[in-house]
Design a protein around this nucleic acid. Structure first.
Length: 138
RNA sequence: CAAGAUGGCCGGGCAGUCGCUGGUCGUUUGUUAUCUUUGAUAAUAAGCAGCUGGAGGAAAGUCCGGGCUCCACAGGGCAGGGUGCCAGGUAACGCCUGGGAGGCGAAAGCCUACGGAAAGUGCCGCAGAGAGUAGACCGCCUAAGUCAGUCGUAAGAUUGGCCGGUAAGGGUGAAAGGGUGCGGUAAGAGCGCACCGCGUGACUGGCAACAGUUCAUGGCAGGGUAAACCCCACUCGGAGCAAGACCAAAUAGGAAUUCAUUGGCGUGGUCCGCGCUGAAUUCGGGUAGGUCGCUUGAGGUGUGUGGCGACAUGCAUCCCAGAUGAAUGGCUGUCAGGGCUUCUUUUGAAGCUUUACAGAACCCGGCUUAUAGGCCAUCUUGCGGA
C-alpha cells in the first residue's frame, strides 16, 4: 500500500472543481473548514484546495495549511476512494498551529468517510442512479 | 568594563522516516515514423529505480530605474509629468560615492524637498496704530509756520495750543526695514563717523558647488512663503510575461470545391434569374487545453591591478529554484538559542513552552517597510588597571 500524492490525485482544472460545486453529494463543515465531495467513478480519490486570501492573510500560512491538508489527505487516501473533494478554508484557520490542524483534519476526513459509506448504502437501495448516466468530466 | 556611533554577517544545525517538484541516466510499456522486417533505430507519452538541484534578506510594498516583448513613431513646438547645491559612479535612476553649505550633538557621527523671492502674480490667521512703494496707540519734541496769554518801550523772552516733526524707548506679534558706540539734533534718524554684519565687483584657491579676512565699492535699498502659481536647467512615447510566439479538440458560425441537383421554400401573374435550404471534403480565424517565452545573467566566488571611494578591469573557477488549482514539505528524535516555573548562595539542574518577519511567479539595479535572537570589525566618550 503506497501513500504517494501524484498529480492524478489532485483536481487540476476549473471544470473539475465546477463539477463538485454544481452538485456536492457530501458536505462536512466545521467552524474553520468546509469539505465538499462528489463521486468521480474512479478507483482513486482526488482533492482540490481553495484557501482564499480573504480568509488566511499571509502567503506563508496559506502554504502551510495546504501542505498539512495534503499530508492528511495523503495518509487517509485509501479510506476516501471514489470521490472528488474540495476543501475550503474559513476565517480563523490561519490561527491554528500544525498540531491542531492535523487533529482537526483527521476528524473531518473520518466524518467524510462515514458519510460516503452511508451514501453508497442508500444509493444501492434506491433503483434510480442519476449520476451513473453522466460522464466523469463535464 | 559601561554608554554610544558606524559598517558588515547569520537568521537554527544534524539524523531517521513518509512525500512533492526540476534535471540526468537506465529500464518497462504504449503510440508513431523509417528500414537492413521473428527485429533494429529514432521521436514521443506514461510508470518504476538510481544519482543530483530545490525560497529570502527582505522573496514583501509595487515607490523609482533598466533589460526583454508587442503597439505607436518624419521633424519641431505646445500642453502635462518628473528631478533640482557641485563633481563623479552606473545600462539607468528619484540610487550610490566623495565634496560644499546650513542645522543637531561633548565627541565619534547624524540630518537636510539645499536652484531662483531686484521677471510677474497671490497669500501672511489672531494680536497690533501699522504686515509691506510701511506705520504715529502710548511716549519724545515744539526748531520752522501760526494763534492766544504773561513780561518788556522795543528787539525779544516765556507759557499753552494749532499745524506738525520723530522709528531712539514702551506695547503687539513668529516676524516691525541691520547691531554697538560716538558725534549730531528741538526731539530723532546711516543724518555723519568707527568697528562688526550685509550686498556688489575684482583678486586668490578649487574642475565646480564654494571659501578667503585680500582689495575696492555701496550707507544698507530688497520680511516670509516657490512640498502657492510661476521662472530657469535637465529629462520623460504607451502598455506589460495574463507581454508575446506557436500547436490545437468539441460545439456553433464563415469561405471554397465537389456531389445531390431539373428537389423544397421565398420573390413573381408565369418562365428565366436571384436568395435560402441538404451531404461530403478542404481551408482559415479561434475557445477549452497544451508547448515555448523560462532562466547563463549589467551572474556568483576567489585573487591581482587602478581609484580616497562608489566602481572599473585582468585572470582563474562555478552553474546556483523554475512551480502554474501553483513544488521547495509533514512527523519523530537530538543538539544549540529565547522565555517562564521550581530547586539552588553562585555556578548550575529539572520540567514546560516557544522559535522573528515572512513564500519566488519574466529577469536585474535601488528605495521603503517588517524582523525573535545572535556574531564580528572599526571609532568616540567616561571610569578603572598596567
Amino acid at each position: 500500500m503506497t501513500f504517494g500524492f501524484s498529480p492524478s490525485l489532485r483536481l487540476l482544472k476549473s471544470s473539475e472543481f465546477k463539477r463538485v460545486f454544481d452538485k456536492a453529494d457530501i458536505k462536512v463543515s466545521d467552524k474553520n473548514i468546509l469539505i465538499l465531495a462528489r463521486e468521480n467513478h474512479l478507483e482513486i480519490p482526488r482533492v482540490g484546495l481553495i484557501i482564499a486570501k480573504k480568509n488566511v492573510r499571509t502567503a506563508v500560512s496559506r502554504n502551510r495549511i495546504k501542505r498539512v491538508i495534503r499530508e492528511t489527505f495523503r495518509h487517509s487516501q485509501h479510506s476516501l476512494q471514489g470521490l472528488d473533494y474540495v476543501v475550503l478554508a474559513r476565517k480563523g484557520l490561519g490561527e491554528l498551529d500544525n498540531r491542531q490542524l492535523h487533529s482537526l483534519l483527521d476528524k473531518q476526513w473520518l466524518r467524510a468517510r462515514k458519510r460516503s459509506a452511508s451514501l453508497r448504502k442508500s444509493d444501492q437501495s434506491s433503483p434510480k442512479k442519476p449520476d451513473r448516466a453522466r460522464p466523469p468530466v463535464d
